[in-house]
Design a binder for these strands. Structure first.
Lengths: 337, 337
DNA sequence: TTGTACGCGTTATCAC
DNA sequence: GTGATAACGCGTACAA
């Protein structure tokens, strides 16, 4: 344990024989002081280990050179990659980033909005887990930026996201091109608007090529199900007499579980069934057979989000309201030949 | 964009026809008001969406019901699992957790210490990337808790960590028990004190059983190397005429890469070589063959860390200075038979 | 360069 | 028991 008496700007001013205003100017390099006073002040600050009180600073300036990122789950590769690139951008621009983990709990998301708001952050980015964002999330006039998820909101918030629908469309069409005709869609539990987007890409591609795709070709895992449920669901689907020669999944883990189900039913990947995952997570490279997948571009998304938020904070002009990133297909063994 | 005028406690007081003191008391449930005024005040707060200004509150009380977690990389399963359980604990206790990602940059770690300090957080937990912690990290008298990594420090900080050395010892001995005699140790780049701990467990087990283990049986990957380097290093080791029938790695990814190297040299796992990973990450279950690994207990560690920090914040007595968690072995196909 | 009013919630003191 | 008044904490920015 350390035991320190807090040193305030008043102490420093007294010890250096100047006013608090001068100390403040030295700290902020805002001029209005001589070389000598600067050195005197700096040496006193060093000697007593003074750290300026951010609470007082933000109370006065209602800015803190701090931004918040609210996200559902730092334990998810895609999200945490976004977070890391955001952090790097803001660090480079002398801002601090505070990351808040909501555990996919909408209530907690709102609590963090209020907390960041009351901590006087200069802006907030959110990968929301709410379907609807109310306008009372923050009380101050700070920018809010939506990343990835785009819940309904009445505030015309700026958005950085990826074109998941087209990504799913391309993946589905790729399987069709390779001769698949009975392609099913396996979806983990997702908020309504997320799920709809992804499924629509699949449905549109199938219908474009006059292939059957409807409720009966979609396996929707219920909320709270684990990966073993996916394996079981695929087996049950086959046991019910349905044919499969292609699977599109909403995550790599779903795809890997689906492949386990296929294996237990004696079906080979990619010879009998071709499989697409989603998000190009590490495990898609490591599993056997290696998994074809859809790559969003989390680093670029994070960087664009951070850049946009900083522009909003600085109240610059002509900031695009919506940035949508393309998805690309990464083909590996699970869709070979 | 939202455009709001900030509502302050003064506005609420005026609108409710009471003083700011009363509003404050209602907010903090500190008594001294009647049911009627309470309802009146609450309805005004609701109506105008008032959020108390944390900067002002922490300026006065030098507490913010907020704690910080500084960590090297949220993109790492082990760390982020710790973080999630810390977050859950503090949320349950009505604290907010701000997570700061240092990218393994000691300078940045120090910057975040100062920022959290000046934001008046009530305590800081750190998975440090420094070898030495100076005592000027924070200026106020707040508790700091070390998690996992235990750099040298002069402040007698509390520690929550795991007994990695014994874990490595047990894994090595397990391979010896299964008949391995030429066991090598493959280490990714790690800070000195981390690496030493892990390697010592391996060395002690080998020496206890009179098996050769020294510089020549340790593959140390240089800083900044990627997984392909591990694969190559294993191949080169074999090409140099060395024998391998067991491998202990400092991460699951290292182990998976090592297995790829073995495969390319025509060696089978587990028949010819048995392999241990480290940390029981998702990929250890998914790879083929599935990987035996060492499980630390990140959830329990996170929970213990959070509990300890809260006790320190509340200045309770008899808080254990050091909590060390055991590691357990998880045996899968890579060490079978 | 400096003095000082200001921002806003908390809490001790005081009045009824 | 209820509620108001005012001092306080500390950095900022404008006026002097």
């Amino acid at each position: 344990m350390n035991s320190k008496k807090t040193v305030s700007i008043i102490d420093i001013a007294r010890l250096a024989g100047v006013s608090t205003a001068t100390v403040s100017h030295v700290l902020n390099k805002s001029g209005r002081y001589s070389k000598e006073t600067e050195e005197k002040v700096k040496s006193v600050i060093d000697k007593y280990g003074y750290v300026s009180n951010n609470a007082a600073r933000s109370l006065k300036s209602s800015s803190s050179r701090t931004v918040g990122l609210i996200m559902p789950n730092i334990n998810n590769d895609f999200f945490s990659t976004i977070a890391v690139s955001i952090e790097q951008f803001f660090d480079y621009n002398n801002y601090s980033l505070f990351i808040c983990n909501t555990d996919n709990d909408p209530q907690k998301e709102r609590r963090y909005f209020h907390k960041l708001d009351s901590m006087q952050v200069d802006g907030i980015m959110v990968i929301s887990c709410q379907n609807l964002l109310e306008s009372d999330l923050v009380s101050r006039d700070i920018p809010i930026l939506l990343i990835d998820r785009t819940p309904i909101n009445s505030m015309n918030l700026h958005i950085v996201a990826s074109d998941v629908k087209t990504g799913m469309f391309k993946a589905t069409e790729k399987l069709i091109e390779k001769g698949c005709r009975n392609i099913i869609f396996v979806s983990s539990y997702l908020a309504t608007y997320v799920k709809t987007n992804r499924k629509d890409g699949y449905l549109e591609a199938m219908h474009k090529h006059n292939l059957k795709a409807d409720q009966s070709t979609v396996i929707q895992l219920p909320k709270g199900s684990s990966l073993i449920n996916t394996e079981t669901a695929v087996i049950e689907y086959l046991d019910a007499g349905n044919k499969i020669d292609g699977i599109i999944c909403t995550s790599d883990n779903q795809a890997i579980s689906a492949m386990m189900g296929l294996k237990r039913k004696g079906l080979r990947v990619p010879e009998d069934v071709k499989v697409f995952g989603f998000d190009n997570q590490l495990q898609s490279r490591i599993c056997t057979p290696s998994l074809s997948t859809i790559e969003r571009n989390p680093s670029a998304m994070g960087n664009a989000a951070a850049e946009t938020l900083l522009k909003l904070i600085k109240k610059q002009e002509n900031i695009p309201e919506t940035l949508i990133f393309d998805c690309s297909l990464i083909e590996r063994d699970s869709t070979k030949q």
